[in-house]
Design a protein around this nucleic acid. Sequence first.
RNA 1: GUGGACGUAGCUCAGCGGUAGAGCUCUCGGUUGUGGUCCGAGCGGUCGUGGGUUCGAAUCCCAUCGUCCACCCCA
Length: 425
Amino acid sequence: MKGKFQKPRGTQDILPLEQKYWFWIEDNFRAVMTAAGFGRIIFPTFEDTALFSRSVGEETDIVAKEMYTFADRGKNSLTLRPEGTAGVARAYIENGMHKEPQPVKLYYFGPMFRYDRPQAGRYREFYQGGAELFGEEDPIVDAQMIAVMIKFYKKLGLKNLVVQINSIGDAKGRPKLEKALVDFLSAHRRQLSAESKRRLAKNPLRVLDSKEKEDQAIADEAGGVLLDNLSKESKTYFTKVLEYLDDMGVKYELNPRLVRGLDYYTHTVFEIIDASTGLALGGGGRYDGLMKILGGPDTPAVGWALGVERTIDCLKKQKVDVPEGPSVDVFVIQLGDEAKKKAIRVIDELDEAGYSVGHALGRDSIKAQLRVADRNQARLAVILGEREVHDKSAIIRDLSDGSQESVADKSLSAAVGRKLKEKKK
RNA sequence: GUGGACGUAGCUCAGCGGUAGAGCUCUCGGUUGUGGUCCGAGCGGUCGUGGGUUCGAAUCCCAUCGUCCACCCCA
């Protein structure tokens, strides 16, 4: 049976068996971010379309061709969020958080939407975990943000991750930087790919991360041009970020060609890359100019986001031992009508005693019930038949070795507790 | 948005013009109230969908939807 419908392209059903990875990530994410002093924020899944086009940048692929934009019944143009930073920044301003003690540190976890052609690790609806820090401009803050991200990945148990880092200077220095870049690239215009030529006019920085073969040599050189033309302050800032990272024991690679796809970045930009696949698990950077663009008070900010599905792929690839989902301590089995009624009470009693209790009240044969117990990896079974109903007792069966004992009803939950304890040793 | 591969049972796949198959899963059974192993039986598919070619199509053709891969881009 296929049914009449299939899920929309690029979306996925995440079934119970898969959930252990999600819990592992969500739990660790929450723990690490909370410990680092970040507060959680939940913000709308859709926003005014203009919020994204302003902050992410009209020329970016995200805005130009990947947004899920629709008009609501009130004729407002809304867009399913393609990323988190714009929404969090908007919330910061709208809720007057600039009047709170700075820095304000926020984290989020939730779905994002981009109309893109699906591929490995790329979906139309996908989850990101992200963090933003507002109101402080100091190299050590940039370094700390990166360190927190690395800490999270470490806690997950992932290895072989590389931090790539670069600086694209501040807004003041940007004109000079772009001019130097344009001059350099124009001089080599004939060797550039068509796409790079287009970017040269619209967004010269993006030429740097071109993957076109013919662009490689020039882009490599252009990375050097970028570094050479950073303003003195920007260079100092960047150097300090790197020094702090050294002090924090965070390993990184300089990648002069790293520029990120969103317009709002300034100064530090970075990505976390899975060294075995070359795929970016997450990335971020500083975006001191964004707040003003959104009509808020001039507020410096740093942030990052990581892709949850990609992180899960990585966990699987590296065979990280992720804790299993909830296991069943004790499985209650009943035979006959009277026993079924008794089972209801026993299940309730064991549940209230704090055990995780399994049962298959809809099945009648003991064979079928034991099979279910086995599949649920239950550790003990409590068997109730007519005999036990009359004797006011129950049989406790150890499902790993098959040993059984009969206990009186009133000492049942105590006996279950004792048995479980024994098995742990 | 471009190029390529592929859509057959819940899952993994075979069949590639002549009445739908395997393995795994699942359900039941292997005598009286005992699972995981083993053995047996059974359930389960209008072969993604819609057209077309043909006496006849899962098999050929077209379209469409979806999946995967590369590019583009990104998380």
